[in-house]
């Protein structure tokens, strides 16, 4: 179970070759030896090939945040399966392209909608984005109300296809 990680949309592979106090790793094909000594809950000293660096790290599920040499990294471990704790959306669920706030919801459950019809307006970063129907169909659920905020990937509206 070696890990594939994603940083800024790019995938990287970390192979553990040896564990223990000083681990031998192969990162994107290059070997290195590394160890991590914790000095606090989230702070410690990283030793890579004999050189020490102060490091801070914290984890949120599959995402690790690492602060190293003045830079913070968001490193996501890719799992080979869907995380079912998120309560996935039914097919036809329209997901938020970015976190934001719903400004207007223009449809109700039961509405017949055409493909590309505007369903809602969301705001993020002082910019408004239209949410449109990906397929023609019937609105089966509206999961967000005007003024409500949501995370990236949250299902906003569900449309069941009917051609």
């Amino acid at each position: 179970m070696n890990a594939t990680h994603r940083i800024d949309g790019r995938e990287h592979r970390v192979l553990a070759l040896r564990r223990g106090a000083c681990q031998r790793l192969e990162i994107d094909g290059s070997p290195l030896e590394a160890s991590l000594r914790w000095t606090g809950d989230h702070e410690g000293t990283l030793t890579v090939n004999g050189h020490e660096h102060p490091v801070a790290a914290a984890q949120d599920g599959p995402v690790l945040f690492v602060h190293l040499e003045g830079r913070t990294w968001r490193i996501e471990t890719i799992q080979g399966f869907a995380d079912r704790t998120e309560g996935g959306a039914a097919d036809g669920g329209i997901r938020a392209p970015m976190p934001g706030v719903a400004v207007e919801i223009e449809v109700e459950v039961g509405d017949q909608v055409a493909a590309n019809q505007r369903l809602a307006l969301i705001e993020s970063m002082k910019m408004q984005t239209e949410i449109t129907a990906p397929v023609p169909g019937v609105v089966t659920a509206v999961r967000v109300a005007p003024g409500e905020s949501f995370e990236r990937g949250a299902v906003l509206i569900e449309v069941e296809r009917s051609d």
Binding site: H5, L25, L36, G44, V55, L64, V66, L68, R71
Partner: peptide
């Protein structure tokens, strides 16, 4: 790339 490798190493070692 070396900064990236170090960060990945740290992430691996810090991983719960």
């Amino acid at each position: 790339a070396d900064a990236l490798a170090k960060a990945l190493a740290a992430a691996h070692l810090a991983d719960r």
